[in-house]
Protein backbone atom coordinates (compact mmCIF):
# COMPACT_ATOMS: atom_id res chain seq x y z
CA UNK A 1 0.00 0.00 0.00
CA UNK A 2 1.69 3.07 -1.22
CA UNK A 3 -0.72 5.26 0.70
CA UNK A 4 0.24 3.98 4.11
CA UNK A 5 3.43 5.89 4.43
CA UNK A 6 5.04 6.77 7.68
CA UNK A 7 4.88 10.44 8.52
CA UNK A 8 7.79 12.29 7.05
CA UNK A 9 8.09 14.64 10.00
CA UNK A 10 11.22 14.58 12.06
CA UNK A 11 10.89 12.56 15.24
CA UNK A 12 14.15 13.20 17.01
CA UNK A 13 12.95 15.46 19.79
CA UNK A 14 9.43 14.18 20.05
CA UNK A 15 8.59 11.13 22.09
CA UNK A 16 6.21 8.62 20.55
CA UNK A 17 3.51 7.41 22.93
CA UNK A 18 1.13 5.40 20.75
CA UNK A 19 1.87 3.56 17.55
CA UNK A 20 0.56 0.88 15.27
CA UNK A 21 2.50 -1.40 12.97
CA UNK A 22 0.62 -3.03 10.11
CA UNK A 23 -2.45 -3.16 12.28
CA UNK A 24 -5.68 -4.49 10.74
CA UNK A 25 -9.03 -4.69 12.48
CA UNK A 26 -11.88 -7.07 11.81
CA UNK A 27 -15.49 -7.50 12.87
CA UNK A 28 -16.25 -11.17 12.43
CA UNK A 29 -15.09 -11.87 8.85
CA UNK A 30 -15.28 -8.31 7.69
CA UNK A 31 -12.14 -6.21 7.49
CA UNK A 32 -12.83 -2.81 9.00
CA UNK A 33 -9.37 -1.24 8.81
CA UNK A 34 -6.37 -2.59 6.95
CA UNK A 35 -2.65 -2.25 7.51
CA UNK A 36 -2.31 0.94 9.44
CA UNK A 37 1.10 2.07 10.56
CA UNK A 38 1.45 5.35 12.39
CA UNK A 39 3.13 6.99 15.37
CA UNK A 40 1.38 9.38 17.71
CA UNK A 41 3.46 11.89 19.60
CA UNK A 42 3.32 12.72 23.22
CA UNK A 43 1.68 15.95 24.39
CA UNK A 44 0.32 16.70 20.95
CA UNK A 45 -3.16 16.64 19.59
CA UNK A 46 -3.57 14.22 16.75
CA UNK A 47 -6.79 14.16 14.77
CA UNK A 48 -8.25 11.42 12.62
CA UNK A 49 -10.37 12.72 9.76
CA UNK A 50 -12.07 11.06 6.84
CA UNK A 51 -15.44 10.03 5.45
CA UNK A 52 -17.78 8.09 7.68
CA UNK A 53 -17.31 4.34 7.84
CA UNK A 54 -13.58 4.51 7.16
CA UNK A 55 -12.64 3.06 10.54
CA UNK A 56 -11.47 6.18 12.38
CA UNK A 57 -13.30 5.15 15.55
CA UNK A 58 -12.17 1.55 15.21
CA UNK A 59 -8.56 2.67 15.07
CA UNK A 60 -9.06 5.08 17.96
CA UNK A 61 -10.73 2.44 20.10
CA UNK A 62 -7.84 0.05 19.57
CA UNK A 63 -5.56 2.30 21.62
CA UNK A 64 -7.35 1.39 24.83
CA UNK A 65 -8.78 -1.90 23.63
CA UNK A 66 -12.36 -0.72 23.77
CA UNK A 67 -12.92 -2.80 20.65
CA UNK A 68 -12.68 -5.85 22.89
CA UNK A 69 -16.19 -5.06 24.10
CA UNK A 70 -17.70 -5.58 20.66
CA UNK A 71 -18.46 -9.26 20.03
CA UNK A 72 -16.55 -10.59 17.05
CA UNK A 73 -13.90 -7.87 16.96
CA UNK A 74 -10.31 -8.97 16.32
CA UNK A 75 -6.90 -7.50 15.49
CA UNK A 76 -3.86 -8.41 13.44
CA UNK A 77 -0.56 -6.58 13.63
CA UNK A 78 0.69 -4.55 16.55
CA UNK A 79 -0.57 -1.63 18.58
CA UNK A 80 1.86 -0.08 21.04
CA UNK A 81 1.36 2.15 24.05
CA UNK A 82 4.83 3.35 25.00
CA UNK A 83 6.77 0.12 24.60
CA UNK A 84 3.98 -2.31 25.48
CA UNK A 85 2.28 -4.30 22.77
CA UNK A 86 -1.35 -3.73 23.73
CA UNK A 87 -2.70 -6.90 22.20
CA UNK A 88 -0.19 -9.22 23.81
CA UNK A 89 -1.97 -11.77 25.98
CA UNK A 90 -0.22 -10.65 29.16
CA UNK A 91 -1.67 -7.15 28.83
CA UNK A 92 -4.77 -6.48 30.88
CA UNK A 93 -7.12 -4.11 29.06
CA UNK A 94 -8.40 -2.82 32.41
CA UNK A 95 -4.95 -1.46 33.22
CA UNK A 96 -4.52 0.05 29.77
CA UNK A 97 -7.84 1.87 29.95
CA UNK A 98 -6.77 3.48 33.17
CA UNK A 99 -3.75 4.97 31.39
CA UNK A 100 -5.48 5.67 28.10
CA UNK A 101 -8.78 7.39 28.88
CA UNK A 102 -11.65 7.98 26.54
CA UNK A 103 -14.37 10.54 25.86
CA UNK A 104 -17.30 9.53 23.70
CA UNK A 105 -19.37 11.02 20.93
CA UNK A 106 -22.47 11.50 23.05
CA UNK A 107 -21.90 12.70 26.61
CA UNK A 108 -22.47 9.66 28.80
CA UNK A 109 -22.42 10.74 32.43
CA UNK A 110 -23.48 8.04 34.88
CA UNK A 111 -26.92 8.48 36.46
CA UNK A 112 -25.26 9.65 39.65
CA UNK A 113 -24.35 12.99 41.17
CA UNK A 114 -21.69 15.20 39.58
CA UNK A 115 -19.37 14.36 42.45
CA UNK A 116 -19.96 10.62 42.15
CA UNK A 117 -19.31 10.74 38.42
CA UNK A 118 -15.80 12.06 39.03
CA UNK A 119 -15.20 9.85 42.06
CA UNK A 120 -16.20 6.63 40.28
CA UNK A 121 -12.82 5.95 38.68
CA UNK A 122 -10.73 6.85 41.72
CA UNK A 123 -12.98 4.76 43.98
CA UNK A 124 -12.62 1.57 42.00
CA UNK A 125 -8.87 2.15 41.99
CA UNK A 126 -8.96 2.65 45.76
CA UNK A 127 -7.65 6.19 45.61
CA UNK A 128 -5.97 6.96 48.92
CA UNK A 129 -5.82 10.74 48.79
CA UNK A 130 -8.36 13.45 49.47
CA UNK A 131 -11.31 12.77 47.21
CA UNK A 132 -12.84 16.26 47.56
CA UNK A 133 -9.64 17.87 46.36
CA UNK A 134 -9.32 15.41 43.51
CA UNK A 135 -12.88 16.10 42.36
CA UNK A 136 -12.27 19.83 42.57
CA UNK A 137 -9.02 19.76 40.63
CA UNK A 138 -10.44 17.52 37.90
CA UNK A 139 -13.43 19.80 37.48
CA UNK A 140 -11.06 22.77 37.34
CA UNK A 141 -8.94 21.16 34.70
CA UNK A 142 -12.08 20.49 32.69
CA UNK A 143 -13.13 24.14 33.14
CA UNK A 144 -16.35 23.11 34.80
CA UNK A 145 -15.68 23.88 38.44
CA UNK A 146 -17.14 27.38 38.54
CA UNK A 147 -20.37 26.20 36.95
CA UNK A 148 -20.98 23.24 39.24
CA UNK A 149 -19.21 23.93 42.51
CA UNK A 150 -22.49 24.70 44.28
CA UNK A 151 -24.32 21.64 43.00
CA UNK A 152 -21.86 18.80 43.25
CA UNK A 153 -24.50 16.53 44.72
CA UNK A 154 -27.06 17.15 42.02
CA UNK A 155 -27.62 14.67 39.25
CA UNK A 156 -25.25 14.92 36.32
CA UNK A 157 -28.29 14.69 34.07
CA UNK A 158 -29.29 18.21 35.15
CA UNK A 159 -26.29 19.66 33.27
CA UNK A 160 -26.41 20.90 29.69
CA UNK A 161 -24.93 18.76 26.89
CA UNK A 162 -21.70 20.76 26.78
CA UNK A 163 -21.34 20.66 30.56
CA UNK A 164 -21.99 16.92 30.54
CA UNK A 165 -19.22 16.43 27.99
CA UNK A 166 -16.80 18.45 30.09
CA UNK A 167 -17.88 16.39 33.09
CA UNK A 168 -17.00 13.26 31.12
CA UNK A 169 -13.58 14.75 30.38
CA UNK A 170 -13.11 15.57 34.06
CA UNK A 171 -14.19 12.02 34.91
CA UNK A 172 -11.58 10.63 32.57
CA UNK A 173 -8.87 12.85 34.08
CA UNK A 174 -9.61 11.57 37.58
CA UNK A 175 -7.93 8.23 36.93
CA UNK A 176 -4.66 9.94 35.90
CA UNK A 177 -4.38 8.87 32.28
CA UNK A 178 -1.51 9.84 29.97
CA UNK A 179 -3.62 9.81 26.87
CA UNK A 180 -7.16 10.99 26.17
CA UNK A 181 -8.95 9.43 23.22
CA UNK A 182 -11.85 11.54 22.02
CA UNK A 183 -14.39 10.08 19.64
CA UNK A 184 -16.10 13.05 17.97
CA UNK A 185 -16.41 14.74 21.37
CA UNK A 186 -18.25 17.79 20.06
CA UNK A 187 -20.50 16.32 17.41
CA UNK A 188 -23.54 16.33 19.69
CA UNK A 189 -22.92 19.87 20.94
CA UNK A 190 -23.84 23.36 19.80
CA UNK A 191 -21.12 25.68 18.38
CA UNK A 192 -20.45 27.53 21.62
CA UNK A 193 -20.10 24.34 23.63
CA UNK A 194 -17.89 22.98 20.83
CA UNK A 195 -15.53 25.94 21.12
CA UNK A 196 -15.27 25.45 24.86
CA UNK A 197 -14.31 21.81 24.34
CA UNK A 198 -11.70 22.85 21.78
CA UNK A 199 -10.22 25.43 24.16
CA UNK A 200 -10.14 22.80 26.83
CA UNK A 201 -8.29 20.39 24.55
CA UNK A 202 -5.65 23.03 23.99
CA UNK A 203 -5.21 23.52 27.72
CA UNK A 204 -5.03 19.78 28.38
CA UNK A 205 -2.29 19.31 25.79
CA UNK A 206 0.26 20.48 28.38
CA UNK A 207 -0.27 17.37 30.44
CA UNK A 208 -1.91 14.86 28.16
CA UNK A 209 -1.63 13.39 24.72
CA UNK A 210 -4.93 13.77 22.88
CA UNK A 211 -6.14 11.75 19.93
CA UNK A 212 -9.40 12.99 18.49
CA UNK A 213 -11.70 11.62 15.81
CA UNK A 214 -13.66 14.32 14.08
CA UNK A 215 -15.95 14.81 11.14
CA UNK A 216 -15.34 18.46 11.25
CA UNK A 217 -12.30 19.51 9.22
CA UNK A 218 -12.28 23.04 10.65
CA UNK A 219 -12.06 21.48 14.07
CA UNK A 220 -9.17 19.28 13.02
CA UNK A 221 -7.31 22.25 11.58
CA UNK A 222 -8.06 24.43 14.60
CA UNK A 223 -7.03 22.06 17.38
CA UNK A 224 -4.64 19.44 16.14
CA UNK A 225 -0.91 19.35 15.61
CA UNK A 226 -1.00 16.23 13.47
CA UNK A 227 -3.71 14.92 11.23
CA UNK A 228 -4.28 11.45 9.86
CA UNK A 229 -6.56 11.23 6.85
CA UNK A 230 -8.31 7.89 6.49
CA UNK A 231 -10.49 6.72 3.66
CA UNK A 232 -11.97 3.65 1.99
CA UNK A 233 -9.66 1.37 0.04
CA UNK A 234 -10.40 2.41 -3.54
CA UNK A 235 -9.32 -0.89 -5.04
CA UNK A 236 -12.01 -2.77 -3.12
CA UNK A 237 -14.61 -0.09 -2.72
CA UNK A 238 -17.55 -2.46 -2.12
CA UNK A 239 -15.95 -4.00 0.94
CA UNK A 240 -15.55 -0.62 2.61
CA UNK A 241 -12.16 -1.33 4.07
CA UNK A 242 -10.65 1.62 5.92
CA UNK A 243 -7.08 2.62 5.14
CA UNK A 244 -4.74 5.36 6.28
CA UNK A 245 -4.16 7.62 3.29
CA UNK A 246 -1.94 10.33 4.65
CA UNK A 247 -0.54 11.32 8.01
CA UNK A 248 1.39 14.50 8.60
CA UNK A 249 1.54 17.76 10.46
CA UNK A 250 -1.88 19.34 10.32
CA UNK A 251 -0.62 22.41 8.54
CA UNK A 252 0.86 20.30 5.76
CA UNK A 253 -2.25 18.17 5.38
CA UNK A 254 -4.42 21.22 5.04
CA UNK A 255 -2.14 23.40 2.91
CA UNK A 256 -0.07 21.01 0.91
CA UNK A 257 -1.41 17.46 0.91
CA UNK A 258 0.71 14.95 -0.93
CA UNK A 259 -2.16 12.70 -1.86
CA UNK A 260 -4.82 13.61 -4.42
CA UNK A 261 -7.57 11.96 -2.36
CA UNK A 262 -6.64 13.97 0.73
CA UNK A 263 -6.79 17.13 -1.30
CA UNK A 264 -10.19 16.21 -2.70
CA UNK A 265 -11.49 15.52 0.79
CA UNK A 266 -10.24 18.66 2.52
CA UNK A 267 -11.38 20.85 -0.32
CA UNK A 268 -14.80 19.27 0.03
CA UNK A 269 -14.89 17.47 -3.30
CA UNK A 270 -15.93 14.23 -1.67
CA UNK A 271 -16.82 12.85 1.72
Amino acid sequence: MEANILPSVKTQNEEIILSTKNASFFYHDKTAVKNVTLNIKKNKITSFIGPSGCGKSTLLRSFNRMNDLIPGASVEGDVYYKDQNLYKSSIDPVKIRQQVGMVFQKPNPFPKSIYENIAFGPKINQFQGNMDELVESCLMKAALWDEVKDKLNESAYALSGGQQQRLCIARALAVFPDVLLMDEPASALDPIATLRIEDLMNDLKEEYTIVVVTHNMQQASRVSDYTAFMSIDRDRIDERIGVLVEYDETIKIFTNPKNKETEDYITGRFG
Binding site: P122, N125, Q126, Q128, N130, E133, L134
Partner: peptide, 8 residues
Protein backbone atom coordinates in the same frame (compact mmCIF):
# COMPACT_ATOMS: atom_id res chain seq x y z
CA UNK B 1 0.96 18.14 44.20
CA UNK B 2 -2.02 16.38 45.74
CA UNK B 3 -2.83 14.98 42.34
CA UNK B 4 0.06 12.56 42.27
CA UNK B 5 -1.66 9.19 41.69
CA UNK B 6 -2.01 7.67 45.11
CA UNK B 7 -3.42 4.39 43.88
CA UNK B 8 -3.04 1.01 45.42
Amino acid sequence: VILAPIYK
